[in-house]
Amino acid sequence: MRIAVLSDTHLGHRRFYAESFAQLESSLKTALAHNPDIIIHPGDMFDNTSPSLDSLNRAYSIFSKFSNSGVPIYAIAGNHEKLPRDMANPVEFLGATGCFNYLHNTCKLVGEVAFVGMNYLPEDKAKDALELIIEREKDALSSAKKRVLVIHQNIKDYAPGEGLTKKWLNSLPFDLILNGHIHKRIYEWPIILPGSTLTTKINEEEVLPRGITVIDLASSSVEFKEIEQKPFFYKVLEFDDGKEEEIREAILSLYSSIKGEKPDAIIKIKLKGSTASEKTYISLPRMKDLYVDNDLVYKKLEKAVEEWKASLSEKKDIIEASNEELVKELSKKMENAEEFLSMLYTMEAEDIVKELLREEQVNKEVAAK
């Protein structure tokens, strides 16, 4: 059996609304071009629990067009679609129209292969729920020639946070496990993570091309197939006491260079290093498909804070004030960097820190009562 998998399409995405539908259509077209026996969508079909009518209509039109191909499509819901148990999530709602099959909490036999699906569940409930489904469907699973599990959970071997483990998943009675949720492509048979068809977080990890995964169950072979998409570029610009005009020109030059070669490119530029003045914000004209992540700092201010914290550590009565949270709180009280700098070298700073500590202690005492 050949299985095509496309996941985390995030239809109706706020930033990439039109692209989400275009890349769903491209994914389904690419899938059919590789002669699958079945198409699987392991969750996060939509970007939120309440898609607009336009999003639902577009999704219905696309899935309906491809459902007439004769290749069955099965889908589950992910964490982005999770609703209370007594409410139909958008994947269940759309599946009820017949444009694809809703696989949650059931076992479906396609040929001689059993497919078990489970929607996203909070990490502390997922394991028990899955074990209950397996126990309930044990007869169908034991009679099938091959068994495939479709889930949408975090796997803590691959991503931070709580989640299922590879060891536990590998102990389950399945020949193949398809998992959505994690946008990285990871192929570690029998666990397959197809990644997302859409660039959503515009960070360095998402530079890789988007696409689908095609699996031959008999030979355990896995292939990535790229889809049509807007190219995504992630670039870093570093400065040492850079002037605002210099930084602005560097951004505009890089943007023009990329757009000259790839007019439809999405561009993320990360600014690192330091500025020559206290103004770290860089004003830019509005530019299509440009996103700037500004991590620039003003060295003079940063150095002054460190010196002040060092001086505080020598005074036992206010040593606690050297922690970062209090420094942040103190800086919020200043109208600008110059005022903060001048204040750092006066006794007034110690008085303010003492007051902050006193307020913190009072708050703790009130909370305790």
Rank of each mutant, 00 (worst) to 15 (best):
T197P: 06
E360I: 03
E307K: 15
F224K: 10
L284G: 12
D128E: 12
E137R: 14
A368P: 00
K166W: 00
E188D: 15
L11D: 09
E206L: 10
V110K: 08
G70V: 01
K243R: 11
K262H: 15
N48C: 13
S61G: 03
L284R: 12
D8P: 05
L164D: 04
I352D: 02
D128R: 07
P194D: 04
I282P: 10
I191D: 10
P36I: 11
I258Y: 11
A367P: 00
W168I: 02
E131H: 08
V292C: 01
V148E: 09
F232Q: 11
E278N: 13
Y298I: 07
E360C: 03
I266T: 02
K333H: 03
T97L: 05
K303N: 01
P90Q: 12
I212K: 09
K332D: 06
S283R: 12
W308C: 05
V71L: 09
I266R: 13
S26E: 13
L252P: 05
T346Y: 07
F100Q: 10
A77H: 04
R136H: 11
G260M: 12
K145Y: 12
P51C: 01
S253C: 07
K309P: 00
E92K: 13
Y158L: 13
P51E: 07
E360N: 09
C107H: 05
Q229D: 03
Y298V: 10
V113R: 00
I40L: 14
R248I: 06
N89S: 14
T280S: 10
A265H: 14
E135Q: 12
I352L: 13
K279P: 06
E320H: 09
I40M: 02
A126E: 00
C99V: 15
S27A: 15
K279A: 10
V362C: 00
L109Y: 01
A218N: 14
K332W: 07
I247L: 04
H41E: 04
D54L: 11
I258M: 08
K108H: 11
E360Q: 09
A31G: 10
L94W: 02
A96R: 15
I282K: 07
K262V: 00
L217F: 00
Y60T: 01
L296G: 12
